[in-house]
């Protein structure tokens, strides 16, 4: 199901915990699986469950709890804009409007060319930089004014 490279990273995560608590590595394993597959299909979650000796539904619980796991296919770039209160007060509403107009999609939708998926995120813990946006779960962008958004989108072609 997953390639050797991914399994190697998962094994490293598993090794951090006692042998009878393999399931502690579930978040790491899901992140690795998602990096390889792009999203977490039921088959992938089932595989992670059997790999870590845990019930599939327990993996499903974790995968649905955290917003960074994709339970359906996403575009090449997943843009996750924080809309919690500090960001909202500092221009996230405007940023959201700008993004939706520019990309022609609403939240939880993917552009027709498959390039961008727009998501609404919860607080990323960087309110001083509000509004903030996460690109593909790993790259944090600060002060998302319409201008900086345009610059970013141009870069992410």
């Amino acid at each position: 199901m997953l390639n050797a490279q991914s399994l190697k990273i998962i094994d490293k995560a598993v090794a951090k915990y006692p042998p009878d608590q393999k399931q502690s590595a579930v978040m790491a394993a899901l992140a690795v699986a998602q990096d390889e597959k792009g999203w977490l299909s039921p088959e992938v979650m089932d595989f992670v469950a059997s790999y870590l000796d845990m019930p599939p539904v327990a993996v499903y619980e974790v995968a649905t709890f955290y917003g960074m796991y994709n339970l359906s296919p996403v575009g090449k770039y997943k843009l996750c804009l924080c809309t919690n209160l500090p960001c909202a007060l500092s221009g996230a509403v405007e940023a959201a409007e700008h993004l939706k107009k520019k990309l022609g999609v609403d939240f939880n939708e993917t552009t027709a060319d498959g390039r961008f998926t727009l998501k609404e995120g919860e607080c990323f813990g960087a309110c001083g930089d509000a509004p903030v946006m996460l690109v593909n779960n790993k790259r944090m962008e600060s002060f998302m004014t319409p201008e900086s958004l345009d610059k970013l989108l141009a870069e992410l072609k």
Binding site: P55, V57, A58, Y60, E61, T64, F65
Partner: peptide, 10 residues
């Protein structure tokens, strides 16, 4: 002895 139901989402 078998977890068949779970609570998903948040």
């Amino acid at each position: 002895g078998v977890m068949e139901l779970g609570m998903i989402g948040r």
